[in-house]
């Protein structure tokens, strides 16, 4: 009669009879020893466990980092949405500093989202960047118009005042 020991990773357990051991839920890679084995061996390498493991599939081998990478997803890459960078820089320099800067930040977001594969996020950020840039454009245009109207009014007033 063999007396089996197994190692649960922290301490050795046993001795057990073969039937007792089968109840312990050992796996293929559980280290097992019995007299007169020179050293511990994974249960999966021992003949008498072949029946026990016959029905359970082998453990998935863990990938060694750096040697095998999963194939990239083959879904088609949509083109990067417009990031409005140039327009928002122009907006910053010519009219509406705060809106232009918000536009630039969204431009960065378009790029980072797109690069990390978040195409939906990139599309959204692109829309936001566009909104801010256009907003600053029309705000600038509006300011100029109001300004010109005020000047015209001022000129008119001064003409009629004299």
């Amino acid at each position: 009669m063999k007396h089996y020991f197994y190692h649960d990773g922290t301490s050795k357990q046993g001795p057990f009879t073969f039937d007792e051991l089968k109840e312990k839920g050992i796996k293929r890679d559980t280290q097992v020893w019995y007299h007169p084995m020179p050293d511990w061996k994974p249960a999966g390498e021992l003949e008498e466990f072949a029946d026990l493991f016959g029905q359970t599939p082998p453990e998935m081998k863990k990938e060694v980092k750096g040697t095998a990478t999963p194939p990239p997803p083959s879904e088609p890459k949509p083109p990067m949405p417009k990031n409005w960078l140039v327009e928002s820089i122009l907006a910053t320099l010519f009219c509406c500093l705060p809106f232009g800067i918000v536009g630039i930040i969204y431009a960065a977001k378009v790029d980072s989202s797109y690069r990390s594969g978040n195409y939906e996020g990139a599309r959204k950020a692109s829309k936001d960047a566009g909104t801010w840039t256009k907003l600053s454009f029309f705000l600038g245009l509006g300011t100029v118009l109001v300004y010109l109207i005020l000047i015209a009014a001022g000129v008119a007033t001064s003409i009629f005042a004299f």
Binding site: N83, L85, I89, T92, I101, I104, I105, A107, A108, D111, S112, R115
Partner: peptide, 14 residues
């Protein structure tokens, strides 16, 4: 020149 990192450089410069 116009990617993510460049955009942050642009912001910093401004």
């Amino acid at each position: 020149m116009y990617g993510y990192r460049a955009i942050w450089v642009v912001l910093t410069v401004i």
